[in-house]
Nucleic acid binder design. Structure first.
Lengths: 199, 199
DNA sequence: GGTTTTGCAATGCGATCGCATTGGAAAGGA
DNA sequence: TCCTTTCCAATGCGATCGCATTGCAAAACC
């Protein structure tokens, strides 16, 4: 057996280069050559790890999911004894482009959503991802209700969905610059005020 | 003076061809040749009306705004003596991909949002568009409150924003197939129930 | 009816694309 | 040590890209 290399690690490095190219020049400028250059490897190397460009992008999308999840858990673990409301707020905040990394992830995600509308394999992956997020968003709210922090009169399913899609809808306008992070968070906090009202 | 042609009309025809190509094959597949073919004109004609590809896409985006606005007013004018709530509901419904045309517009819009993140002129146009929409969304809610249909205790500014961004957030997942139109409308109706509560 | 100006069609060009092919360096296993 | 397998660098190829150039038909104006 020859040279031993961590296959997945190499693929991840290339995927990260894909993100940089998408962020800096957009999805339509993603070429094998530019990705290779950004990853500081040869074009042959990229071809060695991905049979086609589409396969590379598919992996890049699935790796992005893991990356977002990792960042999310990191941020959440920094909270000391958070209330359920603080927890939910932090999840929402982490989804918004609050720092360079979150911004890159948001840009890449939108690029993939757009591309997926013309390419099916990507769409399947994204759809599953969304459904999982919607589910966990409902779960958190239900836990909060069971813990008595949210009124039993609220429809936690519909409110959880509304909160999740609200955050989703804030991302694009924030990236474009039509909305500041501050205002976006104020809108979220306003909804949290309502959900967690102690009246 | 030679042959007289409605300049803007020609440009709109080409822009419509751009939408079709984006919808069917995605933004990264938009080429001058394919757009010309879709518009049933020669490539020379496209070049005659747009100096560059970027200029063509910029016009396509601005024409898309007019097209959406036209469709919106058409749908609204079909309502017979609508209540304010029905009016708002219809606006939200028209923004979602409920039919073929709305779906095409949503797809094209996402494609432009994504592309605009790497190209500034598009971003400026989109930002202005969003801000106008946010403003009018606030205005409608304020009118409803002044008419006594919405409780004076509500923060119409924040609620108007939340409603608008909620609708925005529903579009992507609906396109991807992670959410049905029915469920999307149910989420909106649930929020409208709350806003227009007569308690 | 000649002149001029516009509306396009056609073609060419250099750059870039994804992908295939080839060759060889490096690293275990026999 | 030799051999095999993997890793990857380099190059080539046909297709396609945006854009420039050229040429000409058609239509107002004199």
């Amino acid at each position: 057996m020859p040279k031993v290399v961590d296959h997945d690690e190499r693929r991840r490095v290339i995927a990260e280069a894909v993100y940089v190219v998408i962020e800096q020049r957009g999805m339509e400028q993603v070429s094998l050559r530019d990705v290779a250059k950004e990853a500081s490897v040869s074009m042959g190397a990229v071809q060695h790890y991905f049979r086609t460009k589409d396969e590379m992008l598919l992996f890049a999308l699935s790796h992005m999911r893991e990356r977002v999840l990792t960042r999310l858990t990191t941020h959440l673990s920094r909270l000391k004894n958070p209330t359920r409301r603080q927890y939910i707020r932090e999840v929402a905040r982490v989804m918004l482009p609050t720092d360079a990394q979150a911004r890159q992830e948001a840009i890449v995600n939108i690029a993939f959503v757009s591309r997926s509308l013309a390419e099916d394999p990507l769409q399947v992956l994204l759809r599953e991802g969304y459904q999982r997020l919607i589910d966990s968003s409902d779960t958190v709210l239900r836990e909060a209700r069971d813990a008595g922090e949210i009124s039993r009169e609220l429809d936690v399913k519909k409110e959880g969905d509304a909160l999740f899609f609200l955050v989703q809808g804030l991302i694009g306008p924030t990236l474009i610059g039509a909305l500041s992070i501050r205002r976006a968070m104020a809108i979220i906090d306003h909804q949290l005020d309502r959900l967690f009202a102690t009246s």
